[in-house]
Design a binder for these strands. Structure first.
Length: 333
DNA sequence: AAACTGTACAACCGCCGGGTG
DNA sequence: TCACCCGGCGGTTGTACAGTT
């Protein structure tokens, strides 16, 4: 919110605010913002908004750019790996969405936050437990995350039969650590994550889907690309037939001068092939099977282990199976 | 076919911390 | 030191669309 001055300033700002637009952005506004940033760069959002002729607040412009118009914003379903990473990192940092987003190239904090609220919290609600409860966290850690890992590995194994054509130029991103990825156990190395997924560094890793949204200023921008149309839900945590790991396939890594991020160009990205598997870098801050679970509080007949009846999500829908597993885990601990 | 409901996501809001004059 | 501005963050709301009744 603007900090209002006094007297005449207040009057002027109030008049300006009366002209300020709110709500959904139009294509023209998008183009104006894209063109201006392409020519002048981002930052100083309030003056940018005025200079670009946009009747929007600087905040609104910034948000529109960061969450939607940036060429490296990744759209589409949250992949299995991303789901796993979100669960993992949320377990470590809680609602630090922007921090979590740093590890998911092309995903915005807003998108991750929305994902968490609409998907994860929904299932916590269905399980009649608090999303921040130890029970739900344990379920994620000991059941759903290992299951996700299994599914990712299965998908990766299937992918090994595919021939991936690499581009002529390959920029290698070398994992600093190859973490153990045997079945459902994985180890944690925060620095490794940082090295591979820091979108703010010069080695930002983006995925091929980004190329479809790379409109490079106003030239190749199409309103269709910016459509807010609903994308088919991947509310599955692995239930769907997932495209083989976006993060384990090809990577597009910016090379050369990275300072031109405000003037995106498709040539800016070069394709790198099969640089690292996701499971080579997926990690567990908590350390699977190392923390004590509160099984005492999980009586077999509590709502917690009942089928929630959600048929929309076969991943989340395996609750009965999971809960049996859950109990077995408890028996062996 | 219409009404209703649920979902996903874009956008806004309020707060806070850092920078600056 | 203080006031102001700006950018960033997390929480919340609004709304379009899909699915269901």
């Amino acid at each position: 919110m603007e900090v209002k001055g006094s007297n005449s300033n207040t009057i002027i700002q109030s008049e300006e605010e009366m002209d300020l637009r709110r709500g959904p952005w139009t294509v023209d506004e998008d183009l104006a913002l894209i063109n201006y940033i392409a020519n002048h760069g981002e930052g100083r959002w309030n003056s940018l908004a005025r200079s670009a002729g946009l009747k929007r607040t600087g905040k609104s412009c910034r948000l529109r750019w960061l969450n939607y118009l940036r060429p490296d914003v990744r759209r589409g379903n949250i992949t299995l790996e991303e789901q796993l990473l979100i669960l993992e990192l949320h377990g470590r940092w809680g609602n630090r969405w922007s921090k979590i987003a740093q590890y998911l190239p092309g995903r915005t904090d807003n998108e991750i936050k929305n994902y968490w609220r609409t998907r994860v919290q929904k299932h916590a609600k269905q399980l009649k437990c608090d999303v921040n409860s130890k029970q739900f966290k344990d379920a994620m850690r000991y059941l759903w995350m290992p299951r996700l890992v299994e599914r990712i590995q299965a998908a990766a194994a299937a992918a090994t039969t595919d021939t991936v054509t690499a581009a002529a130029t390959v920029t290698t991103v070398t994992p600093t650590t190859i973490a153990n990825s045997n079945n459902t156990r994985y180890s944690y190395d925060d620095n490794n994550l940082n090295n591979n997924f820091d979108v703010h560094s010069g080695n930002m890793v983006v995925t091929p889907t980004i190329m479809n949204n790379n409109f490079g200023g106003s030239q190749s921008y199409t309103p269709e690309n910016s459509s807010t149309g609903t994308v088919a839900s991947s509310d599955s945590f692995g239930a769907q037939v997932s495209p083989i790991s976006d993060l384990t396939q090809d990577y597009y890594v910016p090379v050369g001068n990275n300072n031109n991020k405000n003037n995106p160009n498709p040539d800016y990205y070069q394709q790198a092939h099969d640089q690292l598997g996701f499971l080579d870098c997926i990690t567990s801050p908590s350390g699977l099977y190392t923390q004590e679970m509160d099984f005492q509080s999980m009586e077999p007949n509590t709502p917690w282990i009942q089928n929630d009846g959600d048929t929309s999500s076969s991943f989340w829908n395996v609750n009965v199976e999971n809960m049996l597993l859950f109990q077995q885990l408890g028996d062996t601990m």
